[in-house]
Design a protein around this nucleic acid. Structure first.
Lengths: 138, 138
DNA sequence: ATTATTTGTTAGAATATACTAACTATATTT
DNA sequence: AAATATAGTTAGTATATTCTAACAAATAAT
């Protein structure tokens, strides 16, 4: 168990570093850490409305409104009016905003390459099988 | 390779979620995302001086100075005067500041528990061996 | 010894991030 | 139909985050 925790710590640190370097690669310097966090959360929630986003981030609606307006201004997200509820709108990432996903993909690919570079095919297969079991339902 | 990348993405997402929930557990609400980032970076650099910290974070020294002063005020870090260079001081996390490490540990332990809950002992051993190989030098 | 460089600081200003209070428009409940 | 609740907005304010410019003190280079 000790050893496993240590491995996860290393894995986490390494992926974190790769995400950092990917961020530089993708020239996301236009955004602050907080703004990046908004994009991440919108992405994770799959097009939330303002109320849902504020709840998830534990911020007030006016706070989120202001932040969102700036990100719309900068063309990272758009507001899409809801059909069910005419008061509401859903937040979508634009093509530009979706680049955060490419950024993640880039980091994950780098990590995958570190693994395939150190292990042979059968060992990689083994890792895949083991983690499929870890992530399986029930 | 495709499958491996997917697994790393899931792993990364899951660890991220656990870090998030750990953050709530540890009541780090006193700090902003940016301030948390300062603590993380100081921790990673092992007691940098102001110049090193500013360089790493790609911010100006006055910016970092202001941020550091607030974190010292709140008792998350301390300044320790350098012996080699009397102009300089090194930044250390206080006991309070070091809680970010417990936070990481907590998240990593949770992930380890997810794994040990889904796999039997021999499979866990296998994962440990495989990742030791991945993280081995050359 | 003088000059140049480096470390950290102060002051002042612009923008970002967050809040409360008060409001409009639409939906839901009674 | 009237009252209540919900989604989003606006205005005003406080604090956080960042910058440039200018400086003192210590160190390094000439």
């Amino acid at each position: 168990m000790e050893k496993l925790v240590e491995i996860i710590a290393k894995l986490s640190l390494e992926i974190g570093r790769m995400e950092e370097s990917a961020k530089e690669q993708f020239n996301f310097n236009e955004l602050t850490l907080t703004q990046m966090n908004y994009l991440e959360t919108i992405n994770n929630l799959h097009n939330p409305n303002l109320t849902e986003l504020a709840a998830e981030m534990k911020l007030t609606k006016p706070t989120v409104k202001v932040a969102i307006d700036k990100l719309i201004e900068k063309d990272f997200i758009t507001r899409v009016k809801s059909d069910e509820d005419r008061r509401s709108a859903h937040l979508h990432l634009t093509v530009k905003g979706k680049v955060i996903n490419h950024m993640h993909d880039f980091a994950h690919k780098q990590m995958a390459e570190l693994i395939t570079g150190k292990l042979d095919q059968s060992e990689v297969k083994l890792i895949e099988m083991l983690f499929e079991k870890v992530f399986s339902k029930q």
